[in-house]
Design a protein around this nucleic acid. Structure first.
Lengths: 228, 228
DNA sequence: GAATGCTGTGAGACTCAGTATCGTACGCTT
DNA sequence: AAGCGTACGATACTGAGTCTCACAGCATTC
């Protein structure tokens, strides 16, 4: 959904002013004036001065939640690893804005707090999802917390690296690498019980050590494709 | 480090008023009046209205940092597991205040954000410590981030449980149990070499029958990551 | 016993974020 | 053209946080 032109002008004005003279030195009046609207209008579009820097965060969270709900992944950890990709994708999507925001957030404690708080919402979402999934198994809340925090941490680590490098490469490979770490780490925690239904389909495949991930993927894709 | 009587009266007045009529409904003037001092004096002791709820947080962080510096633990993960005990100990020390604050924080978003932000500082401290420790080893930043976030997550999970239960038991046993989990989990991470040369790489995956080929592919891709 | 300097406090003015209310201009339907 | 809803601007208000200044208490020093 394309944001309204007014809201777009407001964020542009805000980011511009924040970079020119700093966050604290910029008043909401300044932003509204540059955007050519009144102060009232600013607060109609954004509930606070901070929010102008983090628009569509709620929407993103909702998207992640939807993906999680629709997930048919085999394990909880894979489901949330999959979902966290959406978050990274969102940052990559308009890298320009992400980078400017990153530099800003690094300098302004209030914004940093805001960002941390929003990250905590993802973590909470993941925690609840995994908690439901594992319900009944031993130490479910603890394992849920650990898995959620690890996936979020992996994402953040990759994102930070990418932002620090000025968004100069494709961050999904490092993300996969990091999530791979997490999944392997938690596999022994997750599979304490066997598959939940007796009717699972099982894939067993053996490859030479020299096979690259792509080789593996191709072979499995070919196999799955034949069974549709 | 006994806090000054004025500062003590201020926090008492604040917590009392917050509980009686709510956080937003209490002004700094109200707090100052009940404590028998002026508004100016309030802001001399606390930089903000939020801070009155989280006194000595900086001191605690410093204590944790000192413990970390003095640590002689054999591995980074054990060192930060050890350090995080100080944090729990601080909450347990005056359980009364911790519990009242917990109930308050649960109801007031502004305070929740504040708390989350302060937790993030521990995590950052741990991350940097582990990062230094692991410097030079493969994926050091990633593993540092994961270890730090896991230890913090374990602590938070135990703390939340203890607070929800009204502080009715000794939380150090569950903490040890949780940290044991973390340590055991990350031992796996240390031994993460791939299959040995000459042996096949084997993929075994189980999926619900409802899983589409794409689901299977996604899951396997996630497991394989970008490992070459 | 004054003069001096330091420290903690109160008073008041000021800026700005955020909320609430009201009037009004514009576009749309019938 | 009349009616109607929506978006906007204007204005006033509350309260957090900052800053400056004045003053009282209390020591030291000559």
């Amino acid at each position: 959904m394309p944001r309204s032109p007014t809201s777009q002008r407001l964020t542009d004005a805000a980011i511009g002013l924040f970079n020119e003279r700093g966050y604290d030195e910029t008043t909401v009046d300044d932003i509204a004036a540059r955007a050519g609207v009144s102060r009232s209008t600013f607060f109609r579009y954004y509930r606070s001065k901070e929010e102008v820097i983090f628009p569509d965060h709620d929407a993103l969270l909702a998207k992640v939640e939807a993906r999680l709900r629709a997930s048919t992944a085999g394990t909880a950890i894979v489901a949330i690893c999959d979902a966290v990709r959406i978050v990274l994708a969102h940052y990559v999507e308009d890298a320009e804005v992400s980078l400017r925001r990153y530099r800003l957030v690094g300098r302004v404690p209030a914004l940093r707090h805001r960002e941390i708080a929003s990250v905590a919402r993802y973590q909470r979402l993941f925690r609840e999802y995994v908690g439901d999934w594992l319900a009944g198994t031993p130490d479910a809340p603890l394992r849920a917390e650990l898995m959620a925090s690890s996936v979020v941490a992996a994402h953040n680590q990759v994102l930070r690296g990418w932002l620090r490098a000025g968004g100069s490469y494709d961050p999904f490979e490092p993300l996969d690498h990091a999530l791979q770490y997490v999944i392997r780490t938690f596999r022994h925690l997750e599979n304490m019980e066997g598959p939940r239904e007796g009717e699972d389909q099982v894939v067993v495949a053996a490859f030479p050590r020299s096979a690259s991930p792509d080789d593996v993927m191709d072979a499995i894709r070919a196999h799955l494709g034949s069974r549709q």
